[in-house]
Amino acid sequence: MRHTISLFLTLAAFWLFNSGHYSMLVMSLGLVSIVLVLIICHKMDVVDQESQPLYLTPQILGYFVWLIKEIIQANITVVKHIWLGKESISPTFKKIKISQKTDMGKVIYANSITLTPGTVAIDLVDDEIIVHALLYKDFESLEAGEMDRRVSLLER
């Protein structure tokens, strides 16, 4: 039930911010479409812990702040190496172990790796991620496990 309410609020915010017309007719059309989407989602059986991860909400803000800081640092590094040219990069391609247990934790970790410029998660098999990194140094900082530890704190 909590997940249905959260999906309803998300869809309502999406409609209100996109339409910009607040007359009676448009609002009721919006309500009808939201209810239709909710019914379809219930038939598809996708309204659950996985699509609406409400249990993450308290801690995820701190993680986002840390991730944005990390993205800015990685951007500066990659831009520096773009202007330094192709001799300065050392492309690496390797498997790394991950310590997350739940699917949600694995997805958050792989997405964070891909969102950070300089490293791309290519494939995820059981508890190993294949990573392509622009620099060998990036790869070592991934193996040091700062991001891994922070994502593991998110999952419970």
Partner: peptide
């Protein structure tokens, strides 16, 4: 513009992908 330069300069497909990553995020 740096990402655009990177997609021209980098030697192979996987490294060019990192250059596109810059323009997509920051």
């Amino acid at each position: 513009v740096s990402g655009g330069i990177g997609i021209i300069r980098f030697p192979d497909f996987y490294t060019r992908m990192h250059a596109v990553g810059i323009t997509d995020t920051l």
